Simulated assay, not measured.
Amino acid sequence: MKSVLLSTLGASISVSLLVAAPASAQNANVDKRVDRLEQEMRAVQRKVFPGGSSRFFEPDIAPDTATPTTPSTTSSAVSDLIARVDALERSLASLTNQVERNDFRIKQIEDKMAADAVPPVSTDPATVSTAPSTGSDPGDQQNAASAPDPERVSGVASIIMPDTGNAGEDAYIYGYRLWEAKYYPEAQAQLKKAAEDHPNHRRASFAKNLLGRAYLDDGKPALASVALYENYQELPRGERAPDSLYFLSTALVQLDKKADACRVLAELQDVYPNAASGRLRERVESGNAAADCS
């Protein structure tokens, strides 16, 4: 199941490796050049400082004290060494700049692929304006949102949040009561808030699962599939993780993705065999029938 819904991960890793490969090869090349430069510096040091000095590299062999050193040879060797060190520093600076550009390109590619994997959606209930449009265009006034239904406002206000002292429990129960009363947009907002405000509470799994169901009941199977899969992925040991897989299969059937729905139901039976053969047995059977699973 995870391989189906997270198929972009492998592509992202592959792109990252392709972009980063030139930098790795250049690093190895620079390492070789540094080693060669250090050997050449030792050789020059033996010519320039035949007596040895604690400020420079130890000579590999004892200096030949019988060989005189001329000022012209010393000056030429030092000048050549300085020039090569300057060239190496420029090369390293260029490589560092290229690696930083590659890292930035990789981050951009990964962000784009993550955004393309699941289209951004808003789970907050639609808001409406009670004030008339101030624009002079009559078309703007026609498209302005109508005032909320007073009966609905009164109905939502009649749903009271419990106050038991257990904030996570109270937040979930309030969302459940809104869903039970069929105030689906308001229930969606409350259940999402309950899960975000109390991520470590036992009811977080319940809230995320019921959020998906509220989207399903509101005729939004795409949003439901996202919410239900996230509950299974983020809280696999939560009490409603198996239920989320079942309702995810229902959302996929509504999206005309029956093959994926069958894979989800198979995942449910494989990961949660006790729930699949116990309290969810009838739902699993009806789900397999709805998705035409063989």
Rank of each mutant, 00 (worst) to 15 (best):
5 L>Q: 06
10 G>K: 13
11 A>Q: 03
15 V>M: 05
18 L>I: 09
19 V>W: 05
21 A>Y: 08
30 V>P: 01
32 K>L: 15
36 R>F: 09
36 R>V: 02
40 E>N: 11
43 A>Y: 00
43 A>G: 07
50 P>E: 00
54 S>N: 15
58 E>G: 10
58 E>V: 12
66 A>Q: 14
68 P>N: 02
71 P>N: 06
71 P>I: 06
72 S>N: 13
72 S>V: 15
73 T>R: 08
78 V>W: 07
79 S>Q: 15
81 L>V: 05
88 L>H: 06
89 E>S: 14
93 A>P: 12
101 R>P: 10
111 D>W: 13
111 D>C: 10
120 P>M: 07
130 T>K: 01
132 P>L: 15
137 D>T: 13
138 P>M: 02
141 Q>F: 03
143 N>T: 08
143 N>K: 12
152 R>Q: 14
156 V>E: 06
157 A>Y: 05
179 W>V: 00
180 E>M: 04
180 E>K: 02
181 A>P: 06
182 K>I: 09
182 K>W: 04
184 Y>P: 05
185 P>T: 05
186 E>H: 04
187 A>N: 00
187 A>E: 01
197 D>N: 07
199 P>E: 00
206 F>P: 11
206 F>Q: 09
207 A>V: 08
209 N>R: 10
212 G>H: 02
215 Y>T: 04
222 A>N: 06
222 A>W: 08
224 A>K: 03
235 L>C: 06
238 G>T: 01
238 G>A: 05
244 S>T: 04
248 L>K: 02
250 T>R: 00
254 Q>W: 01
256 D>N: 12
256 D>Y: 00
257 K>L: 13
258 K>D: 08
267 E>G: 12
269 Q>P: 08
273 P>F: 01
283 R>F: 11
285 E>L: 10
291 A>L: 08
